[in-house]
Design a protein around this nucleic acid. Structure first.
Length: 695
DNA sequence: AGCACGCCGACT
DNA sequence: GTCGGCGTGCTC
């Protein structure tokens, strides 16, 4: 009440000298900050601080934002300026370093500041409802008091690992280190001992310290979390990933923000956490595409992590058996330091033997060649496990009618409806439309509709017929839809209650299955001829990764190394040659040469303007107009083209590729271009992606 | 993006 | 006569 009087006291007079305005970053697509008037409740109330959160009226609703400045003057007409509803006082303000990180991300990816900052904070902090920090803190104490598993001593390091730990630990200031080593070379041990080293040193110096460990997928957090807890009993650990409930997320975020968690383990979103005492960043499987956010703010968590390390002048470790070409090239040029782990650190372990099966000679039945069937049989007899990898879920990618040529097209997308047999459904993997499986052909009435091609469900069915006694388990996005079911499935495999595991890329990452001695790769060839120039790189990484799943059961008894069989129609393809030789360096050298000649990343910097409309022509026209909006010396703007998957959910999509050899020049152009595009109001939905990965 | 206002078609 | 379609406009 009193506030109202104050506000209307003398609207025409000069502003009071002591009036206070807050500049707020709000979660809105409008690229601007918003000024609000702040009035003290009591005479002696101190003004809010930069980095605190404020609740404000915005349009007809209430929203909260981050205070990015506190000023005594506003350029906004006084009648438009509204008053702050509340300031969250019971939270230490977000640091200047965190604000700079967000400012950089907003600037680099061309998004409004508030759209970066606000979604990076737990919803429960944003809401107007008061959050009792005490109760949060109590939960935190509980979190730390969780019974730790039996402590596990640090493993003895081999020469390569020791060199890596020392190099990282003594690194002065900003030091990007590419840790290159195959599965089983002991990268995790290097992470753990490096973290231990830094934390101990900080503790000895009486300094608080935090280590951020990023992993590509939620599925990988429980395993690593267990490792960390076993190694560091009692050490406060926070986890951050999208699987957390809001309450949990708040608790863990607070543990990080208040500096109480020493180790923060998380997926890409954790890179935007507030970490006041950050001293080391570790990015596991740094090449993994999951580090790229594919909607909203399309950031690369790896790139932001590196920026963050530079900002804080701390080391950052990028670990991978198959580094991204960007990182590999930086290592070649000397910008990153490369450390190779040559040996397999696990005792007696040798690399699995990788062999090809020529599908032209050995015709598969039920998608599996006789060679592979024989190898599976041998494993069943010895009580060992087999993993069959097929990156295609569902029963069959398309249902068709032999009589008239009808195929199960999605009515809303330029894609097939995928047959899901256990669910008795046709399902579009792009718009999620579902239909019953038609009994007969919708065009000609033929009752004999044929599934074409093969997904994990069909392979599972075929295996059940071939090996009726075997315990077969399928792990893919469909079989693990329920929360916790993925973990349960992996546990079943680890317990040894599975003979044959069939899975998509979900099974390719992270898990070591001790009794697994055979990996079969069913249909990798499609990636060889993809229009996406990164498909080969991804396939190579995937094959190396899935090959690494083979455990050491046979070897510990002095048996043969594990086997990997790849079924292919192109056994001469150089990619497979490099996989068989476990030779990433050769493969990368070849790709880098191709990329340089073709003018592709990492020798070129790209951005992609995407447009969506009801009619394709509208989208293309918009892109043409956008292309002609500004002069662009030194910048290549290509022809607008329809996207490969042109229509999704009845929306036609097109894109425009922008290229420049200079990143700063591209950034400068994009900044001006976005300003111009935002000013030109259009009916077409559009978005910009900087450093796109799927072209 | 939300969330309003505003002006034309099928219903209790 | 209203309910409601989504076109246009604004958010300190």
């Amino acid at each position: 009440m009193r506030r109202k009087c104050h506000a209307t006291l003398k609207p025409e007079s000069t502003r009071p000298v002591n009036s206070t305005f807050l500049k707020l970053a709000l979660d809105t697509p409008l690229d601007q900050v918003f000024d609000y008037r702040w009035v003290p409740e009591r005479e002696d109330e101190a003004p809010p601080e930069i980095g605190q959160l404020a609740l404000v009226p915005f349009g007809r609703r209430e929203t909260s934002g981050v205070i990015i400045d506190v000023v005594h003057q506003s350029d906004v007409p006084p009648e438009k300026v509204k008053e702050v509803l509340a300031v969250r006082r019971n939270l230490p303000p977000l640091s200047g370093q965190w604000l700079s990180l967000c400012r950089f991300a907003a600037d680099y990816y061309q998004r409004p500041l508030g759209e970066v900052m606000v979604p990076a904070l737990p919803k429960n902090l944003r809401a107007g409802t008061p959050v009792s920090l005490e109760r949060a803190l109590k939960r935190l104490a509980k979190l730390h008091a969780a019974p730790d598993p039996t402590p596990v001593a640090a493993q003895e390091l081999n020469a390569g690992q020791r060199q890596a730990v020392e190099a990282i630990a003594v690194a002065p200031g900003f030091a990007p280190i590419l840790l290159h080593g195959v599965t089983g070379s002991g990268k995790t041990e290097v992470y753990l001992q490096t973290a231990a080293c830094l934390l101990q040193r900080a503790q000895a110096a009486g300094q608080p310290a935090q280590v951020l460990i990023l992993v590509p997928e939620i599925n990988l957090t429980p395993q690593l979390e267990q490792n960390i807890r076993a190694r560091f009993p009692g050490l406060p650990l926070a986890t951050l990933h999208s699987g957390l409930a809001e309450g949990e997320r708040l608790t863990h975020w607070l543990a990080a923000h208040l500096g109480q968690a020493s180790i923060i383990l998380g997926t890409r979103l954790a890179v935007l956490a507030s970490l006041p005492h950050l001293k080391l960043i570790i990015i596991d499987e740094e090449h993994d595409p999951s580090y790229k956010q594919q909607e909203g703010l399309r950031y690369s968590a790896r790139d932001l992590a590196i920026w963050r390390a530079r900002q804080l002048d701390i080391p950052v470790v990028l670990g991978s058996a198959t580094p991204s070409l960007e990182s590999w090239q930086h290592a070649q040029s000397g910008r990153y330091r490369r450390i190779d782990l040559h040996e397999r650190a696990v005792r007696n372990a040798v690399l699995p033997t990788v062999r090809l099966i020529d599908m032209e000679r050995d015709k598969p039945s039920e998608g599996i060649t006789s060679t592979l069937i024989g190898a599976i049989k041998a494993r069943l007899e010895k009580g060992e496990q087999t993993l069959l990898f097929l990156n295609r879920r569902g029963y069959a990618p398309v249902l068709s009618c032999d009589a008239c040529g009808w195929v199960s097209n999605c009515p809303r997308c330029t894609a097939f409806m995928v047959l899901h047999k256990p669910e008795h459904r046709l399902r579009c993997h792009h718009c999620s439309l579902e239909q019953r499986i038609p009994r007969s052909c919708p065009t000609c009435g033929n009752v004999d509709l044929q599934p074409m091609g093969r997904g994990t469900q069909r392979v599972e069915e075929g295996l059940q017929q071939m090996f009726p006694q075997a315990r077969i388990l399928r792990i893919d996005a469909d079989s693990t839809r329920l929360k916790g079911s993925a973990q349960a499935a992996f546990d079943t495999v680890h317990r040894g209650d599975v003979d044959i595991l069939v899975g998509t890329q979900m099974v390719a990452k992270g898990h070591d299955f001790q009794r697994l001695t055979l990996v079969g790769v069913l249909n990798p060839d499609t990636a060889l001829f993809s229009h996406d120039y990164r498909a080969g790189e991804r396939l190579f990484a995937q094959l190396m990764q899935v090959a690494g799943r083979a455990g050491r059961a046979g070897q510990q008894d002095g048996g043969n190394p594990s086997e990997v069989w790849i079924q292919t129609r192109y056994p001469q393809h150089p990619l497979y040659g490099a996989v068989m030789a476990h030779d990433y360096a050769r493969f990368a050298a070849g790709l880098l040469e191709e990329r340089e000649q073709a003018g592709l990343p990492p020798y070129m910097h790209q951005a992609l303007l995407r447009a969506e409309a009801r009619e394709l022509q509208e989208a293309l026209d918009f892109l043409s107009t956008a292309a002609g909006l500004m002069d662009h010396p030194g910048i290549t703007i290509n022809e607008p083209i329809p996207m490969t998957l042109t229509r999704v959910a009845n929306t036609e999509r097109a894109q425009l590729l922008i290229e420049c050899v200079s990143r700063p020049a591209l950034q400068a152009f994009l900044r001006e271009w976005m300003k111009a595009l935002r000013a030109a109001r259009t009916r077409v939905r559009w978005s910009l992606e900087v450093d796109p990965v799927d072209i």
